[in-house]
Simulated scan of single mutants.
Amino acid sequence: MEQRAYGTTGKQFPILSFGAQRIVDEHHCTEEEAIQIVNRAIDEGITYFDTAPSYSQGQSEERLGKAFQQRRKDVHLVTKTHDRTRDGSLRLLEESLGRLQTDYIDEWRLHNIMTMEELDRCFAPGGALEALIEAKEQGIVKSLSISGHTNPHVQLEAIERFPFDSTLVALSAADHFIYSFAHEFLPKAAEKGVAVVGMKVFALGKLAPWYEKALRYTFSLPISTAIVGMESMEQLEKNLAIAKSFTPMTEIETLEFFKEIVHLANPDVLRWKASEWMSGQWYVRA
């Protein structure tokens, strides 16, 4: 697979990375299957694994911890805090370390900062950013990150305020049409040397009928890597095949793809860009 630089960290990762949200009972993936899928991914060169304590109440983290065993040093492990306070975030980190069976996290991420108000809470005295800085100073985490699904202006403000090593943002082809991280965020992140990880590649399954095109679109963006959720060996192998044969989309291919999917640009489909998850109304910028 093509390898790309991870911002200015000196690291490189394949264009396909592993979103671990789906290797859980909730997505009909058993523990045995999860361990097999994760180890197959590592065997095939995938080294970047993204999880969070909120994914199935910690089951995602637990299964990654069991899967890695003696392979911990072979992977770049990312987890998150959804708490907006210092104390709450440090408690989450301690719990994550236990479930992941490790004494360090390669990257710790503020999870889904949707609004400026949430960003302000994280940056305020006693906010979650204090926890990130303390954990890095103590060597418990190696690098710091922030994620956002909704409003690129929030993440733009975040990287102006603090030198995050990376960002995780929504970069499906359907995201192109409104609150576009591709248009508004990627140029500034590149200017600052901040690594960008793409997510929501299949738009919660709505782009499944255009499976290969959806992956190729996101891979074609100027990003470091894209995380894709995989709950079966079949999905992993399919994604690996596309990643290994990847060629960038041409402008004409991209335009034709957009014409096929523009009808998906509504808040019932792009729920992460709605005012609330199921509101049916677009998010409105402050």
Score class of each variant (00 low, 15 high):
residue 238 K to H: 13
residue 208 A to Q: 12
residue 46 I to T: 01
residue 60 S to Q: 04
residue 35 I to V: 15
residue 249 M to L: 06
residue 122 C to K: 04
residue 35 I to D: 01
residue 158 A to N: 06
residue 177 F to N: 01
residue 250 T to D: 09
residue 144 L to V: 14
residue 104 Y to S: 15
residue 119 L to C: 00
residue 93 L to S: 09
residue 102 T to H: 00
residue 208 A to I: 02
residue 107 E to L: 12
residue 93 L to Y: 05
residue 159 I to S: 10
residue 170 A to Q: 04
residue 236 L to F: 02
residue 187 P to R: 05
residue 175 D to E: 13
residue 13 F to G: 08
residue 247 T to Y: 05
residue 30 T to G: 10
residue 111 H to M: 08
residue 221 L to T: 04
residue 274 A to I: 03
residue 156 L to N: 12
residue 67 A to E: 06
residue 87 D to L: 12
residue 141 V to C: 15
residue 56 S to H: 12
residue 246 F to L: 07
residue 271 R to L: 07
residue 100 L to G: 05
residue 163 P to A: 11
residue 284 V to I: 13
residue 198 G to C: 09
residue 26 E to F: 14
residue 272 W to A: 13
residue 205 G to D: 04
residue 150 T to H: 05
residue 186 L to T: 11
residue 160 E to V: 09
residue 219 F to G: 07
residue 223 I to L: 08
residue 93 L to C: 08
residue 274 A to E: 07
residue 211 Y to D: 11
residue 143 S to T: 15
residue 259 K to V: 03
residue 22 R to P: 01
residue 210 W to Y: 15
residue 57 Q to T: 09
residue 164 F to N: 10
residue 210 W to A: 08
residue 14 P to D: 05
residue 178 I to M: 12
residue 97 L to F: 10
residue 71 R to D: 00
residue 143 S to K: 07
residue 219 F to N: 06
residue 56 S to W: 04
residue 248 P to E: 10
residue 42 I to E: 06
residue 159 I to T: 06
residue 43 D to C: 02
residue 117 E to Y: 11
residue 176 H to F: 12
residue 254 T to D: 03
residue 190 A to N: 13
residue 87 D to E: 15
residue 270 L to D: 05
residue 24 V to Y: 00
residue 193 G to M: 11
residue 174 A to D: 04
residue 132 L to M: 08
residue 221 L to D: 12
residue 183 H to N: 11
residue 171 L to R: 02
residue 243 A to E: 04
